[in-house]
Write a protein that binds this DNA or RNA. Structure first.
Length: 1072
RNA sequence: GGGCCCAUAGCUCAGCCCGGUUAGAGCGCAUCCCUGAUAAGGAUGAGGUCCGUGGUUCAAGUCCACGUGGGCCCA
């Protein structure tokens, strides 16, 4: 493989002028064509050695709808990094992945089929339902492919992975079996939102979709204390309150808050306990507590439950007061009825109290079972009334009313939701927690805080993971249970399934697997698969293994390539993919699943709100592509706060800015190069014959040095995954290149070739330098701007070299050549640019246009390095600022005066409270004292010996001078304008006017003209006459004659008129 | 209710980790320059109670606490 720049050039190959006006989107579409035609992406992988892999994991998105900016952003990051490491010589495979299972897909399928809920799905047929889900997934992938390609993301859609592939699903079984064998899986109850209408638990997300204001019972119930202790006497009553009387048969405890104060209120012969702060809401304004206690003191007291159907549960610890941190006193009585089957907080409070009891007398359709015979068969909401009556009859009802409140409903069936304990499979994440935290510490997160704080905190508090879902379209929980005994088997492969059942299905979805069973090995009963499917996150967390069908295939490859070097996703994946990847990799391999993780923030619409299709508050991505192109969008996104995991307000203005500040300057430079290369007939052979960089003029060495510095900076940032630090130094480089190198070099490119050997050498050096800079710069930017860099590569490199690699993305990423870096030179040029900047500022302030030559510019400095930089570049400065002479001087008498202030940083620590006093004294120092300090002397101020390290002496211009100070120097302009200079200034004005006429006449930059002029003004006549030769040379006039003839224009210069006329000379248009 | 993040110019953001007295950039705006990159390019300028309150300190945009507003995630 040839390394960069070593391909065989076609020596005769010349360059073709490129129009500076560019249609970027059209150019990008051509590049897409080129990539397709040359299979550039596939090649970029194959040409890197297979034993030098860089592993990237692509987090699988749901194929619902079309990709939004968040997906595109993730795509850009996932493209830029692999492109970079590919250019660094690694083989970076990029297989696209699809998260094909899960609730969002099922919901979409239900919508399309017009059915809803488990009953409807069962009637429709799980097999047909799953088939519909599969078709939907396949149909939706196309828009993704189109937009992904358009943004320039190179990723393999052909060899993609899908979580619904049988191979992937088999690996998921294997993963589950690993956990099972390690004892990390268990089954328990989990309280979930439940729809009796649909006979199914819902996700929290679904449960939040339909809240309605409804009227419900509001009952206060008294529960008799059975074993009083302390201030609580036997026979006292605990007051509880609920809006769901149907949960009272399931009551197993009453909760208090440890810190809450409870009081004993007498009422007739009875005494009631409740939270002090809630007394008036129950008893009105005249409560007279006779005793009080903190909640913690009440814990353990036994009471008589509202109903006695489950009184045997007392042996399990039920019907006692327990403590719960969730008890609040903003409603109710501060004594909270606990029915663990019907409330998540209840469930955990009993667990926390060590009470292993649970009763659930409500069936799947929301009706009471025979366990509560009084209401058996009644729906819970219907049973409410009966139960309230029963409480009244038993004397337990204290108050009964109605309350209107907001309550969740089932979005699909319109029935009220209840909470209900559902058997659920868990992974023991809490056992893995410590190790997960340690493993997380080895991961490099960008930005860092996401990993160390946000994700780290999440890990420390990780709870066991509920991995089962009562759904249909997903990987199955591969557990078979015996109908007759406790036997349970986890199946981890098709081989095992075949061995057990004699069957080997080619699809592992629920409708197939549920049909498979075998006789129980211990009791001869039948082994039946449990009904649940796996959480989709379990599958995406299994992606590193599932993608390769590990361990059934690719075992060696996987082991060599795990963990991944790099992943990138949004901040919302903290609890999602990042988490499940780590849980599973820790459980299975005791390793992280990835080494570097780039986390991006959320993209908001320009108005700061979420992007919303219905609000139309953001431009369609394809609009951006059509108007400004993918490169601009990529650079905009990469350079934005989303790369720091912060939200970004998307604005197409920002994208347009990238076009203006990055793409157009690059294109302009490219156009500039090709224009003059063509005009001069520069060939590749000419470029090759240029002197080696070290022997070229300083300006060339300078820009090459700046380029090398940029290369080393970009490499450092990319190696650290700080993608957001790549664009800013690039912008700085573009400024150096266009506003200094090209501008300063222009005349070198124009000089007529062949007039002098010395000029030719300089010209070729300039062309070679600009060529090398451009062709290297595009390599640096190729990962960010894959299109424009490819275009330039094709035209500037590939065209001229017979065995060049076909794409810029196949080249090796540049590495900085320390031999070309000259920091002294870079520093000197900074000084020069500063002098020029200050000089322009001065001219502006003094209203002295640059076209008017001035006699002298003086740089005031005592720094020999600065003085040397100025002296060495006096010509450049003189040219830029149109002055006749540039000198340096250390003598600032009459121009600058000294001014002092304290160096707080060094003095503050030493002086402490005496600081303000010293600062005032320093500001008031006399010039002689300052001179003394400057020459190394010490002064006694505030009782301290202070020297040059403590006092900052600055020079400021004296009033009435044409002087301006910079950070390390001052610039003085001599503004006396002699007669000669006036004439020269006029000549420059004339040149300027003629150039404008040339442009307005549409002449080519190489066209020769005849110039005629006339003026009634003596001074102008003198000026033009004296400088006619210079004028002619500047405006490419082969004759300059008094008397106008042809197209003419009259201008005012310094209040006097001049008439100019130009005409194109015959035979012009030759090489200049 | 909890965790994390953010709040600096009209807009988008640096600066904050490690405190130092004149807070920067780009865009936009205004004024001007250049005219051989020209449907480009450049310079200069105006514009800031650094969200609020309190604290620590000789010194706070920067550190601490509390609050306000916004975001993400979780409950």
């Amino acid at each position: 493989m040839p390394s960069n720049g070593r391909e065989t050039p076609n020596p005769a190959s010349g360059f073709t002028r490129v129009d500076p006006a560019v249609d970027i989107p059209a150019m990008e579409r051509q590049i897409l064509e080129l990539w397709r035609a040359t299979k550039a992406f596939e090649e970029s992988i194959l040409r890197r050695p297979a034993d030098n892999e860089y592993i990237f994991y692509d987090g699988p998105p749901f194929p619902t709808g079309s990709p939004h900016y968040g997906n595109l952003l993730a795509g850009v990051i996932k493209d830029m990094v692999p492109r970079y490491w590919t250019m660094r010589g690694y083989r970076v495979e990029r297989r696209f992945g699809w998260d094909t299972h899960g609730l969002p897909i099922e919901m979409e399928v239900e919508k399309r089929l017009g059915i809803s809920g488990p009953k409807a799905i069962a009637d429709f047929g799980v097999d047909r339902f799953n088939q519909a889900a599969r078709s939907l997934v396949q149909a939706n992938t196309e828009t993704w492919e189109a937009l992904t390609e358009r943004i320039g993301r190179w990723v393999d859609f052909e060899d993609d992975y899908k979580t619904m592939d049988p191979e992937f699903m088999e690996t998921v079984w294997w993963v589950f079996k690993q956990l099972w064998d390690k004892g990390l899986v268990y089954k328990d109850f989990k309280v979930l939102p439940y729809s009796w209408g649909a006979s199914t638990p819902l996700s929290n997300f679904e449960a939040n979709k339909d809240y309605r204001d409804v009227e419900d019972p509001s009952v206060t119930v008294r529960l008799e204390v059975l074993d009083g202790a302390g201030p609580v006497e036997t026979g006292d009553y605990l007051l509880i309150w609920t809006t769901t009387p149907w949960t009272l048969p399931g009551n197993l405890a009453v909760a208090v808050g440890d810190e809450i104060t409870y009081v004993r209120i007498p009422d007739g012969d009875d005494h009631y306990w409740m939270a002090s702060s809630r007394v008036t809401s129950v008893f009105g304004d005249d409560p007279s507590p006779v005793a009080s206690a903190q909640g913690a003191a009440l814990v353990g007291i036994q009471y008589q439950p509202p109903f006695d159907h489950f009184s045997s549960q007392r042996d399990a610890g039920a019907f006692r007061i327990i403590s719960s941190p969730d008890v609040a006193t903003d409603e109710g009585t501060g004594l909270v009825h606990m029915a663990p089957a019907y409330g998540e907080a209840d469930f955990y409070a009993l667990k926390g109290a060590g009470i292993d009891a649970m009763v659930d007398p409500v069936d799947a359709e929301g009706a009471f079972t025979e366990e509560v015979p009084e209401v058996a068969g009644q729906n819970v909401k219907v049973a409410d009334a009966t139960l309230i009556d029963l409480l009244g009859e038993s004397g337990k009802l204290v108050r009964s009313g109605r309350i209107t409140h907001s309550y969740p409903f089932c979005e699909r069936t319109g029935t009220p939701l209840i909470y209900k304990a559902i058997p659920t499979w868990f992974v023991r994440v809490e056992d893995l927690r410590g190790r997960m935290v340690e493993i997380n510490d080895t991961i490099h997160w960008v930005p860092e805080y996401v990993g160390t704080r946000r994700f780290g905190n999440w890990l420390v508090n990780a709870r066991d993971w509920a991995v089962s879902r009562n759904r249909y379209w997903g990987s199955c929980i591969p557990v078979w249970e015996c109908s007759g005994c406790d036997e349970a088997v986890a199946v981890g492969s098709l081989d095992q399934l075949e061995e057990l059942s004699g069957q080997r299905p080619n699809d592992l979805h629920k409708h197939v697997v549920d049909e498979i069973g075998w006789p129980c090995a211990s009791c001869g009963g039948s082994m039946v698969r449990v009904p649940e499917v796996l959480d989709g996150w379990f599958e995406s967390g299994s992606m590193p293994y599932g993608m390769l069908h590990y361990p059934f295939e690719n075992a060696e490859r996987f082991e060599a390539a795990f963990p991944a070097k790099f992943i990138a996703e949004g901040l919302d994946q903290t609890r999602g993919w990042f988490y499940t990847l780590i849980v599973l990799s820790t459980a299975l391999f005791d390793k992280p699943a990835f080494e570097n993780c780039v986390v991006n923030g959320l993209i908001l619409a320009e108005d700061g709100r979420k992007m919303s299709k219905s609000l139309k508050n953001y431009p369609d991505p394809s609009e951006i592509f059509d108007h400004m192109g993918a490169d601009a969008l990529r650079a905009f996104l990469i350079n934005s706060p989303v790369l720091r995991a912060e939200p970004l307000r998307f604005s197409s203005e920002g994208v347009a800015e990238v076009v203006r500040t990055v793409l157009l300057p690059m294109w302009n430079t490219y156009s500039f190069f090709t224009t003059y290369a063509e005009a001069d007939g520069i060939t590749v052979a000419d470029l090759e014959s240029a002197p080696s960089p070290g022997d070229r003029p300083e300006l060339d060495r300078w820009i090459l040095s700046v380029l090398q510095s940029l290369i080393s900076e970009v490499n450092a940032q990319m190696e650290g995954y700080y993608l957001y630090n790549v664009v800013p130094p690039t912008l700085g480089f573009i400024d150096h290149l266009t506003n200094w190198y090209v501008r300063r070099s222009r005349r070198r490119f124009w000089r007529t070739r062949g007039e002098s050997g010395e000029d030719d050498a300089d010209k070729v050096a300039a062309f070679a330098t600009l060529y090398e800079v451009l062709t290297t710069f595009i390599e640096v930017l190729a990962p960010v701007l894959p299109f424009i860099t490819e275009h330039l590569y094709q035209d500037l490199v590939a065209r001229h070299r017979t065995d060049a690699v076909v794409s810029v993305h196949h080249r090796d990423f540049p590495e900085a050549d320390p031999g070309l870096i000259d920091t002294d030179l870079e520093l000197a040029m900074e000084v020069v640019r500063e002098v020029v900047r200050i000089g322009r500022n001065l001219r502006k302030k003094e209203a002295l246009r640059v076209r008017q030559p001035l006699p002298r510019l003086t740089v005031l400095t005592r720094d020999p390095t600065v003085a040397e930089a100025v002296t060495d570049h006096a010509g450049v400065i003189a040219d830029e600022l149109n002055v006749k002479d540039v000198v340096t001087s250390a003598d600032e008498a009459g121009l600058l005066r000294l001014s002092a202030r304290a160096d707080f940083r060094s003095l503050g620590r030493r002086l402490g409270p005496r600081m303000p006093e010293a600062a005032a004294a320093i500001a008031a120092l006399a010039p002689e004292d300052l001179e003394k300090v400057l020459s190394g002397g010490k002064l006694t101020i505030a009782g301290e010996q202070l020297g040059s390290g403590d006092i900052i002496v600055e020079r400021v211009p004296q009033e009435g001078t044409v002087v301006e100070t910079g950070s390390r120097l001052a610039v003085a302009l001599d503004t006396s304008i002699s007669e000669d200079l006036v004439l020269e200034g006029i000549a420059r004005e004339v040149i300027s006017r003629v150039q404008r006429m040339r442009r307005d006449a549409g002449l080519d930059v190489t066209d020769r003209i005849h110039l005629g002029w006339s003026s009634p003004d003596e001074t102008i006549r003198a000026a033009v006459a004296r400088h006619s030769e210079d004028i002619g040379a500047e405006v490419l006039a082969i004759s300059v004659d008094e008397g106008v003839d042809g197209a003419e224009e009259t201008y005012a210069i310094g209040g006097a008129a001049v008439t100019l006329g130009i005409s194109r000379a015959e035979g012009s248009g030759q090489i200049s």
